[in-house]
Design a protein around this nucleic acid. Structure first.
Length: 481
RNA sequence: GGGGCCGUAGUCUAGCCUGGACUAGGAUGCGAGGCUUGGGCCCUCGUGGUCGCGGGUUCAAAUCCCGCCGGCCCCA
């Protein structure tokens, strides 16, 4: 059976919606409210696996999980002026309690810098308590005016992991942003999602931040998806909240903060990145079900029973070895039908067990990613599966990165860049003098979105295509979601 | 922000322009039975619709008009 990626590339939107609903991951568009979706049991399990990865990474780097209120009183949200200007038009307001108008309007949190800074100002009094690193995984609400899209652009972001940290100095906070970037690199590396880190331009940084770094990936259709951000908040929020600490020298000063976030967009990317026309391909170390066993019934009931027993024995052995396994004994569906269903759910390995395997005491293993099958003796099954997990993990990641890197190009001609973005998408790096006005102009000319500049400035021997001065670095542009 | 398209069983869709023969057709799904089972097989029977919601025009509305809700696309 041949692997095709026609559909996932050419009709990505349709493919993605199809996967979410048919694989019973996420029901979107049927609940009678725009921009919200429902995590179905299988999707919820994938979500839990992904969240477990980020929780582990944060916990082992000294982050503590907390849970703040969903509601933010209006005056709190308005404390930091740039922040509220940035979010003003996206806030949902609760204005009534029963039939009575509320004295103070309540916002459904669009993000939690303000409530967290408020409480930190009560909790933290001394440099000795720093650094402090909190995080929570919660729903946030943003009234998106643009077209909403299942999991990619929603009004209730259900899996927002937001981290908030406090530091004694600007440099400490800057270091924390670096740590956040390292943590996210590990996170996306674990999931096998390729990424590029860019420093967002000034006009597109987080509302209230000194600077913003962002992780972007490229979806199969060539459009770019922001999958993570990390902000240096300076003293913007601590000043707004009059949050002071006692320093080493006894003086009082405002501490420095950072915040960084990821959301279910990471899960959307996870599903999309390795997808083919049969559905997504889950990384073996993320998949809620790692191995599915499909019994192939025999002509006679007695043999069929033996085959099922054999399957259950295999499952027991795999479970014992920590491999999450499901035996699909549904008598109503033919094996062929089950193959399609479990491929659609992205289960990385499948065992096809029929009379042949029963007689020879073997198992037939098929890889989801390549659809290649091998027959191995039963005694070698566990080792073989573990080896295949490693191989699939490695292959998926290598392929994803190869594809990703092939879609990042350098061009000095803006017209050609525009044409290429329209035709194929991807990310294009263009020479840039570093001036915001030229950056905005580049955005306009190429009819694209500026992602920002590389973390480490790149040597470029070209001139800025707008002003003609020597370029200091490159600016990354793309078509974005 | 500007423009366009669309909403009919769980899902997809025909019908809408040109109102009446629509008691709304099909596919898929779901249920029962049979036949099968190593890639969505086939057959029989059954199930399932306030035609998104509200209002208007008309003797008559899925069909025309208005508002709302929801979905999609293009442009900025």
């Amino acid at each position: 059976m041949k692997i095709s990626k026609e559909k996932v590339r050419k009709q990505f939107s349709e493919w993605f919606d199809w996967v979410l609903s048919e694989a019973e991951i996420y029901d979107y568009g049927r609940y009678p409210l725009k921009g919200v979706g429902i995590w179905m049991p299988y999707g919820f399990k994938i979500r839990e696996k992904v969240l477990a990865v980020i929780r582990k990474l944060l916990n082992e780097t000294g982050h503590e999980e907390v849970l703040f209120p969903l509601l933010i009183p209006e005056d709190l949200l308005r404390k930091e002026s740039e922040h509220i200007v940035g979010f003003e038009e996206e806030v949902y307001w609760v204005t009534k309690g029963g039939s009575k108008d509320l004295d103070v309007k309540l916002a459904l949190r669009p993000t939690s810098e303000t409530p967290i800074t408020y409480m930190e100002s009560l909790w933290i009094k001394s440099y000795k308590q720093l650094p402090k690193k909190y995080y929570q995984i919660v729903s946030i609400f943003r009234y998106e005016t643009k077209a909403t899209r299942a999991m990619l652009r929603v009004r209730e972001v259900t899996s927002f992991k937001e981290a908030h940290t406090v530091h004694e100095t600007f440099e400490d906070a800057a270091k924390q942003v670096r740590e956040a970037i390292e943590i996210y690199k590990k996170f996306f590396d674990t999931l096998g999602i390729p990424y590029i880190v860019s420093k967002r331009p000034d006009w597109d940084k987080f509302a209230g931040a000194v600077y913003t770094y962002a992780f972007d990936t490229i979806m199969p259709d060539g459009k770019v998806l922001q999958i993570g951000t990390a902000h240096h908040l300076g003293q913007n929020f601590t000043k707004a909240f009059d949050f002071k600490i006692q320093k080493r020298d006894g003086t009082l000063d405002y501490p420095y903060q950072t915040s960084y976030g990821i959301s279910e967009r990471a899960i959307a990317a996870l599903l999309a990145i390795n997808g083919d026309d049969h559905g997504p391909i889950l990384n073996p170390y993320i998949a809620p079900i790692q191995v599915v066993i499909i019994p192939i019934p025999a002509k006679d009931d007695e043999t069929t029973k033996k085959i099922i027993n054999y399957c259950n024995d295999l499952k027991a052995e795999l479970d014992k070895n920590g491999i999450s396994t499901y035996v699909d004994t549904d008598p109503e569906r033919t094996p062929g039908e089950k193959f399609y269903i479990w491929e659609l759910k992205g289960v990385p390995l499948r065992l096809e067990i029929g009379q042949r395997e029963l007689n020879n005491n073997t198992v037939f293993i098929k890889r989801r990613d390549t659809l290649e099958g091998i027959s191995v003796p039963r005694s070698a099954m566990v080792d073989e599966i573990k080896k295949l997990f490693e191989k699939i993990d490695k292959d998926l990641k290598e392929n994803a990165w190869k594809e990703f890197n092939s879609r990042i190009r350098y061009m000095s001609d803006l017209q050609k860049a525009k044409e290429l973005l329209n035709a194929e998408g991807g990310i294009i790096e263009v020479p840039w003098c570093g001036d915001n006005s030229c950056g905005l102009k580049i955005q306009e000319i190429t009819d694209s979105r500026v992602l920002g500049e590389p973390d480490e400035k790149k040597e470029v021997n070209d001139k800025c295509p707008v002003c003609g001065r020597q370029a200091k670095t490159v600016l990354r542009i793309a078509k974005t979601y």
